[in-house]
Amino acid sequence: MARSRVLHMLWDGFFRPLIRSMVFFLNLILERQRTRRGSILLLFVVAIGIFAFARGMWGSASHLLTPSPELKDVPLALLFSLLRLLAAYALALVWTLPLAVWVGRDERISRRVMPIIEVIASIPATAFFPLIVLTIVRLGGDMNLASILLVTTGMQWYLLFNLIAGIRAIPEDLHQISNSLGLMGRTRWRRLILPAIFPSLVTGSLTAIGGGWNALVLSEYVFAENHLYSVNGIGAMLARATYTSGNLQQIVVSISAMVLFILIVNRLVWQPAYDLAQRRFALNY
């Protein structure tokens, strides 16, 4: 009897408001986020945050409330991770864009090359992370480079497949008129290809960056041959807190910082880019 009353009080006083605020928050995100993948990613991250939070409440509430000295490192770690992410994005774009143009334009090349790309893309790169790190370190590279390359593996396919779809969506008559007018080289890129693929570039980048944040956790903190290779970053911070120190506060704070940051970037960068793509660069007129 007493026990059920306690549960009742807990339900009314704590869980119900918690669930209500969760639903409110999720609705807010779903309304604001225009792309499905973006919102799924956010839902996922938020769900993890809430799960960790709930577990923390259940377990050691007092432990959570004492600030740990690691917290002041969060902003710098976030910045380093962002720079790594941008480098990985640039790297992914540099090779996927020309390949997408080559594959997407010619139906015969596409028929031959696409199956190969699909097989390579289906290899789970995360399984080879230790191997990649060891190889790079042995070749004289440092962990920062290795980490960037690992993040690239988590981004490149989103970009590649979106860009190929974008190239394929360019209407044949636009290619023909470009040929007829003699639009070649740089002018053709500037006037035809880049504007035409802008919408798919935005979608691809949005999903790639999402995948990149995801890969970051695994890329900044790698165990290989009984040795820990790690760099200063939000992903490493999160991984360390989860796998070694078990610092719940650290987990909650790093996840929240990441979520907040992703939300801000989506708001300031991707949403305007997406609106611009719809307004100016849509292929139907």
Binding site: P171, D173, G182
Partner: peptide, 16 residues
């Protein structure tokens, strides 16, 4: 280059 083509579908660049 001394010829030009007009398309049924207009083939205009929507972003220009």
């Amino acid at each position: 280059p001394r010829t030009a083509l007009v398309f049924q579908s207009f083939a205009l660049f929507p972003w220009l």
